[in-house]
Amino acid sequence: MSLSSEDIADGEGVPFDDRGLAYGDGLFETVLVRDGVATLWEAHMARLVRGGERLGIPVPSRSALDALPARAGAGLWVLKLTLTRGSGGRGYRLPDMPAPRLRWRVTPFTPSPERWWQGIRVRHCRLALGIQPRLAGLKHLNRLENVMARAEWQDPEIAEGLLCDSEGRLVEATSMNLFWQRAGRLETPGLARCGVAGTLRDALCRRLGIEEVDAGPETLESAEAVWLGNAVQGLWPVRRLDDDQGQKLADWRIGRLHRALQAEAHALLGYPCHDDDAGERDEEDEA
């Protein structure tokens, strides 16, 4: 199937009374698709099912969902699925017979290889995430906290912002999961209270035994390496960390240590692990 570079969608609008539009009552998945084949598809589907079970929203059949990645055709695309509870109910009261509404879109995608190889600058955010264990780990539609956190900076040199919960524990970045190495151990924030359990994060935790920990933001300043990653962008090594005022707290030289975890992540997504220039930089960094 040949497609133009324009977005391709299911073509049906969202009614005014849709509960996803009105209340964020729903779930979404963002999936990397290469030549019509979805990466980490089983993990995305498992998370969608978990979210549907927890929220009480019936999930479409696997046959209907499995047919969607092939709609993207050749090349690299992002498939976004949005599942809402549909319409009905009075106010916050749930409808007696929910009629879920699935919307989807595939969009051409180009990753940011310069962030893979050169690393990124990140900052802490002032906004703190609310603690709600019943929603923890889900990719639900109510993302207003992330929107407000992302509004804290406009500097294009800053790629991402890091979020803590209201009790001061590291959780995630605004749209990526967080990893670091400390005393030779790979760690990532625990997500039992809030945050999104990314599919790439979960795959790396299972594959490498990455430990889920409770840690404050000061932990990163003594880390040997820090990364951000998700199942669309891949893994970005962090080269500089700022506070919420833009003052530098720590920096790192991107070297073999960063490349090792990146290689594991990119093998799962079909991205390259390094280029010739990156290899030369690594040799210089380790000298």
Results as ranks from 00 to 15, higher is better:
Arg115Met: 06
Leu144Pro: 07
Arg121Glu: 12
Gly52Met: 04
Pro111Glu: 09
Ser63Phe: 03
Val49Phe: 01
Ala43Gly: 14
Gly89Trp: 11
Ser63Pro: 01
Thr107Tyr: 06
Leu79Arg: 10
Asp96Pro: 08
Gly130Tyr: 02
His44Glu: 07
Pro60Gly: 08
Arg47Gln: 06
Val122His: 02
Thr39Trp: 01
Asp35Ile: 11
Leu135Ile: 00
Leu81Gly: 07
Val33Met: 12
Thr107Met: 13
Arg123Gly: 02
Asp66Pro: 12
Pro100Thr: 04
Thr107Phe: 08
Ile131Val: 15
Leu79Asn: 13
Pro100Ala: 05
Thr84Gly: 05
Arg134Asp: 01
Pro113Ser: 06
Trp41Met: 07
Arg62Asn: 09
Gly56Pro: 03
Leu40Ser: 06
Phe109Thr: 08
Leu127Asp: 05
Met148Pro: 01
Met97Tyr: 06
Ser61Phe: 01
Ala136Glu: 04
Asn142Tyr: 04
Arg90Asp: 13
Pro95Asp: 10
Gly91Ile: 09
Val122Glu: 04
Leu81Phe: 07
Arg90Trp: 09
Thr107Ala: 14
Arg54Cys: 02
Leu68Met: 10
Leu102Arg: 02
Ile120Asn: 03
Gly91Phe: 06
Ser63Lys: 08
Trp77Gly: 15
Gly91Pro: 11
Ala74Cys: 13
Arg34Ala: 15
Ser61Lys: 03
Met148Tyr: 12
Gly73Arg: 14
Gly88Asn: 08
Pro111Tyr: 08
Pro108Arg: 15
Gly130Gln: 05
Leu48Ser: 01
Gly75Trp: 12
Val122Cys: 07
Ala74Pro: 15
Ser87Glu: 13
